[in-house]
């Protein structure tokens, strides 16, 4: 309860100073505790609500860029919970360093919103006593199926070989909901039905009524369907009824008003579904659907040229089984 909510500006300034000192005095950084040794001056942190911080991501194709997803952490009176760790161990370490610049409290939880590598491959930076990894009950299976492929791609992107230690499985899984008390604030972890993936997890902070919704919500990055288009639309419609103040989306601004934040994702999915259903109904095949069906609100979405065709394929493969 003693965690004071500091005004955003002063905190940001303080952060910048700590990052600068890390950068300019790299040697002194390296000489301190192991957690500080890879302090990165480039890591930008924004406080989006009292005690809630986001490392902003920038839209890019996975394994073609770095710092793609929004990562975050929530500081409790007892300890710190991290939500997603980034696309590489270096990103994870930079996040760790940024946390040290904000609080001396230890990291106790690393929560993964889903399997995608831009959110999860920084996990390895936090493997140490006292840190528990948590994910959706279906995350382990997704990791088992995809781990090798991700390592191969990540190695190619990083320019050096990564080994299996870079894939960190959850030690605790969430089948429905789990509450975590990090001191003075309770985090509610909720396992969702198949939506963006078949194992999306959201994290609601009781103190700020703000939730990390992972890739259930995309902004400024075309939504990517890797679970179920029908399920995703259903989940968003259910979520919209929850009276949150703000959410932190997996991609886009570091925080956004709820439920307005989900409108673009929902609109894209709903309109895409209608187009694909109509295509299937008139007997069109997959190839022609992918070549012909244009992205709804095409102009507003970055990466539409890389992910829309894939979305049409995913939607088609699902919707063709509807009766």
């Amino acid at each position: 309860m003693s965690m004071p909510s500091k005004p955003r500006k002063s905190n940001a300034r303080k952060l910048l100073i700590s990052q600068l000192s890390c950068g300019f005095l790299a040697l002194s950084c390296a000489a301190t505790t192991p957690e500080r040794e890879t302090c990165s001056p480039s890591t930008d942190i924004v406080q989006v609500a009292p005690g809630m911080y986001v490392r902003p991501g920038h839209a890019a194709v996975v394994f073609e860029g770095d710092e793609i997803a929004n990562l975050g952490f929530i500081v409790g009176d007892r300890c710190v919970a991290i939500i997603d760790t980034g696309g590489s161990i270096a990103e994870g370490r930079a996040l760790d360093c940024a946390i040290r610049g904000v609080t001396g409290r230890p990291v106790c939880y690393v929560i993964n919103t889903h399997v995608h590598p831009d959110h999860l491959l920084g996990n390895a930076a936090f493997v140490r006593p006292g840190v528990e990894f948590i994910g959706h009950a279906k995350l382990p299976r997704a990791l088992a199926l995809r781990g090798d492929l991700y390592l191969e791609r990540a190695s190619a992107h990083a320019g050096h070989e990564l080994d299996a230690s870079n894939i960190v499985f959850p030690e605790r899984v969430v089948a429905e909901t789990v509450e975590l008390d990090i001191g003075g604030r309770v985090l509610t972890l909720r396992a969702h039905d198949s939506a963006h993936t078949d194992h999306d997890l959201s994290i609601l902070d009781s103190r700020t009524n703000t939730a990390f919704v992972g890739d259930l919500v995309f902004l400024e990055h075309l939504p990517v369907i890797d679970g179920s288009i029908n399920g995703w639309i259903d989940e968003l419609e259910q979520l919209s009824a929850i009276p949150l103040d703000y959410v932190v989306p997996g991609h886009g601004p570091t925080s956004a008003r709820w439920p307005a934040a989900m409108a673009p994702t929902l609109q894209y999915l709903t309109e895409l579904r209608a187009k694909v259903r109509a295509w299937i109904a008139k007997g069109g095949d997959l190839a022609s659907a992918q070549a012909t069906i244009d992205a709804p609100q095409k102009a507003q979405w970055p990466l539409v040229e890389r992910y829309h065709e894939r979305n049409v394929g995913a939607a088609f493969a699902e919707l063709e089984w509807e009766d």
Binding site: L145, I225, W321
Partner: peptide, 28 residues
Amino acid sequence: SGGCSAPAGSDLDAAMARLGKIKLKTQG
């Protein structure tokens, strides 16, 4: 690339639940 080692189903449970279901239809 990666299509063979890529995970089979994004929603494997749904695929397994209807294993063997067949749709046969004509068009036009």
